[in-house]
Design a protein around this nucleic acid. Structure first.
Lengths: 106, 106
DNA sequence: TCATCATATTAGCAATGACTAATATGTGTG
DNA sequence: CACACATATTAGTCATTGCTAATATGATGA
């Protein structure tokens, strides 16, 4: 299947649109963590977290650094960090509007 | 149901993670358009587009301005515009990684 | 090498989201 | 008022995504 730029963009953006993945990103926003640490921190299960990590990694949002039997995950680069900060900033301004969105789409 | 800040954040971010909605945003990025114009521009159907517009509006990303029998939709504010630009910038840097993400999640 | 721990992968199921078709609302115009 | 046009809403179906449980891989240390 051919992926257009649009498809890639959507895939990238969709990666941010899941509760577990947002929690993971917040969890490793300031320092890299092992899978176990992330699992414990957000109280998920190992398999599930591992799948979401694979997704975020595959989308170029995070990177994994194996070290012995652990893998440390962290944000890919500063740009991603800044993007996350931008989300928070924009969200603060429009929080009231988002609160009343009850359409079943999204 | 109580919506936590996290839920709101996820709802907001998820709004960007759909092909049709991304197309809509690109379509009205520089100037507001009527629903009909958007429908024609991205070759969707009216009902579908209308639902996605409701979603984006409900999430505070776009605003609708009724004028006579038309409704003009545009980005809510400059911050949203800048956020969209940021997406493009970040994406340019990591496009190669996104391309090879084949996990069925996201 | 065997046992253990950390992480990844797979398959199947459950839940959510998006699309279509039909209908409703609302606005302008003859 | 009646009609035409623009947009919104609803219900139902189909497709996608996420979760769980089980198993596999890979590394460490006794």
């Amino acid at each position: 299947m051919i992926q257009t730029d649009l498809d890639l963009k959507v895939k990238f953006l969709r990666a941010f649109g899941d509760k577990t993945r947002v929690q993971i990103l917040e969890c490793i926003k300031f320092e890299e963590k092992t899978v176990s640490q992330i699992v414990e921190s957000i109280e998920g299960n190992q398999s599930n977290i591992s799948q979401h990590l694979a997704c975020l990694r595959g989308c170029g949002i995070i990177v994994g650094r194996p070290e012995g039997k652990y893998v440390y995950y962290g944000l890919r680069n500063l740009q991603i960090k800044e993007l996350l900060d931008t989300f928070d900033n924009v969200l603060n301004q429009i929080e009231d509007n988002v609160a009343c969105c009850d359409n079943h789409i999204s």
